[in-house]
Amino acid sequence: MWYSIKSIIKPDTLAEAYSLQQGERTTLFSGGSYLVAENNKSIQTLIDINGVISDKVTVNKKNVNIDAGATLQSFIDSVKHTKPNCRLLDGAKNSCPSKNIRNQRTFGGEVGQNRPNSEILVFLHAVDAALTVFTNSEKTISIRKWDGKGIVTKITYYPKQIDSIELQRYSVLPSAPAIVIVGGTRRSGQLEFAIGGTANNIQTFVVRIDDETNNSIANIAQKAISQFIPDHFGSLNYKESLIATAVKRVVDAL
């Protein structure tokens, strides 16, 4: 039971939602699947933003637009026949194996939660997706630069700008949270990597394709491990070797 909840508010505008979000012991929700699971008793006010965000997924020649209110399942249904989105589609499935919960969990919520072991998020970092974020007004910002403030209303990425995409995920079981996820893209003469998993945050690395590429790639695991923590599924040494292997495999695939 969640006795700490005193009120649930449905704001009429994004501005109102944002203003409410600044209050103490409040949190936004749209699908609410994380919220219910976490049952955080420090929260007293829930802000239901379903009325102020959209839930469409639009795939066109230039880009893929995902409104923050789109559920993971509606995304899967929208893009399952669109080839460049396959990895994100898998990511949506792997990040949340239950279809019932995918029917609840929203893209905006997934981004807002900012969980480093979310395959979707690693993918979006790898493709350098653009977020439309409302603070006092709407602005567009790279997901890699977002500070977590404001309300995400839309996620956009540009498959045409990317030559190739690869994502490697390692977990004890397919249904278990990933220990290491490495996403990579090749575009405009460079390789870009996003690395997540049981870590403090998702890190990105950009490597120019030149004579130093191999050396630069070799150093990625060493740098990335600083954001990981040892646990019962692996020491830092092991995780570093796992990241190195994953990066190597991503590069091979790119």
């Binding site: 390692y170 004890v172 019962h232 599924f233 692996g234 020491s235 092991y238 070797s241 796992l242």
Partner: peptide, 8 residues
């Protein structure tokens, strides 16, 4: 049998 144990 953890992956780390196998790899080690």
């Amino acid at each position: 049998i953890t992956p780390e144990a196998v790899l080690t």
